[in-house]
Amino acid sequence: MNELAQILSESVTRLFEDLATREVLEEAETGIWPENLWKELEEMGVMQALVPEESGGVGASWNEVESVIRAAGRYCIPVPLVETMVASWLCSSCGLEVPKGILTLAAGGKLEGSGSKVKGVLDRVPWGGRATAILAEAVIDGEDSIVLLEPDSGEKLAGQNLAKEPRDTLSFTNCAILTGNPLSKDFPKGLVELYGALARSVQITGALENLLGESVQFANDRVQFGRPIGKFQAIQHQLAILASETAAARAASSAACTAADSKKAFFEIAVAKARSGEAAGIGSKIAHATHGAIGFTYEHALHFTTRRLWSWRAEFGAEAVWRDRLGEKALDRGADNLWTDLVSQ
């Protein structure tokens, strides 16, 4: 980790430690916005970490913010920091001015329009109802474009994921966009889903790191049959699998961040989301098995992480979606290119 990454990661971790408390997580699930946490993050300037300096950001690379996003996953922070970071980066990458406030990413649904007006539906947008602006793809006058919209100009249907994070559906009828641009070669169709998937795979890694730490701790503390359950080989081997899955998610998501910095990241992100999504399922299962009944209660904090993992692995394309894309390409290219393609990424 270089110096910038270190500073970013240490300062957000300190903040999360202080402000992403259980109380805050619980309140957020009832719809209370953690204003304090959000304000601190805004003041820190971390939302614009990926935005180039000349556009008012920090100019950090994906690899440099990777640890921030992982920490956001590890602490289950109940604000759209990650969405805002990615949306800000995509705005500046697509030549749009980066708006202030809460930004979010809409990967599901469909928008089309002409001139500066669009209509259509955006499905299950993270914090879509609360955002200042939503970044989405739209077909405008037949051209694939990226646009920013205000949620208030549409009709909102509030929804939530398993972790009770807001996932709001917005319908627009003849709504004026804030700004927009045609898509470019470096950022082609599917970019919102793609980079959303990257962010989720890094968050999943952080969440898995949390499961691993908590599960090992629990196994060392909980005593049955006169000894800590971590002394039982069956538990040890399950936790070894959890550690290996966590390491796999980390390796895949980290490589995807490196690739994102070079803007040719489709393969790496597909691998990262497919692999980390699989690890999320295995990891959650093992963490719950290790924790016994107490981990199945609302009282115990384990579920804040596992409910996120079960949702995050499905958002911005579940394993099935990314596997299909990887598989389609491989079958299309044929057996003779299978290995050469794998190592040329």
Binding site: A252, A270, R275, E319, W322, R323, D324, L326, G327, D332
Partner: peptide, 24 residues
């Protein structure tokens, strides 16, 4: 058959695993 959806998904999963294992 490249149009076999089940095969496609399986191959995709194997590629995700192999690419990750290679990184590691």
């Amino acid at each position: 058959d490249p149009s076999d959806g089940t095969a496609r998904r399986l191959v995709g999963r194997c590629i995700a695993h192999m690419a990750t294992l290679r990184l590691m």
